[in-house]
Simulated scan of single mutants.
Amino acid sequence: MISYETNPVPKIALELLHSKDLVVLKILKMINYFYFLTSAVFLLMSCTDPKTQRSIAGVDVYGSLFVFCMVLYIPMMAFSFYYFVKALTKFFKYKNSRDGVLFLASSVVGVVALYSFNHWVFSEIY
């Protein structure tokens, strides 16, 4: 009979599973950073004048950021909705108010950024 102490395969398998979980957590953390960075770009764009012409080495930075925001508008809505549903799940299903508040705050950050960008686009540009 082979025990776990003499057979190193289960230990290696457990270490691989643990490292896979760490990789997934790091990817989720990077997605959160990207979400907040994109929210900051949305807020930055909504605070600028639409007639601004800024270019670096011949590349129109302002226009590139505007296109970036337009492309990511719908995915940001989806992420905000995901964070809102996750907050409600944490509040009601698990009764964990700390995690629920964090997800709700993340959702509010995205909604405020999207709302300000939407208001800016339709009041200043169109």
Rank of each mutant, 00 (worst) to 15 (best):
L17V: 07
L17C: 05
L17E: 15
S19C: 06
S19I: 07
S19G: 06
K20G: 09
L22Y: 06
V23W: 11
V23Q: 13
V23P: 03
L25R: 13
K26M: 05
K26F: 10
I27L: 09
L28K: 15
K29R: 12
K29S: 10
I31R: 11
I31L: 14
I31S: 14
N32V: 04
N32G: 06
N32D: 14
N32T: 14
Y35R: 13
Y35D: 07
Y35N: 04
L37I: 08
L37R: 01
T38V: 03
T38A: 01
T38R: 10
T38H: 01
T38W: 06
S39M: 02
S39P: 13
A40D: 13
V41L: 14
V41K: 03
F42K: 01
F42I: 00
L43C: 07
M45T: 00
M45W: 02
M45A: 05
M45Y: 07
M45L: 14
S46W: 01
S46F: 04
S46N: 04
C47W: 06
C47L: 13
C47H: 11
T48A: 02
T48Y: 12
D49R: 07
D49W: 12
P50T: 02
P50S: 09
P50Q: 07
P50I: 00
K51L: 01
T52R: 15
T52N: 11
T52M: 08
T52V: 12
Q53T: 10
Q53I: 03
Q53M: 06
R54D: 05
R54W: 07
S55K: 05
S55R: 08
A57M: 11
G58N: 11
G58F: 12
V59C: 05
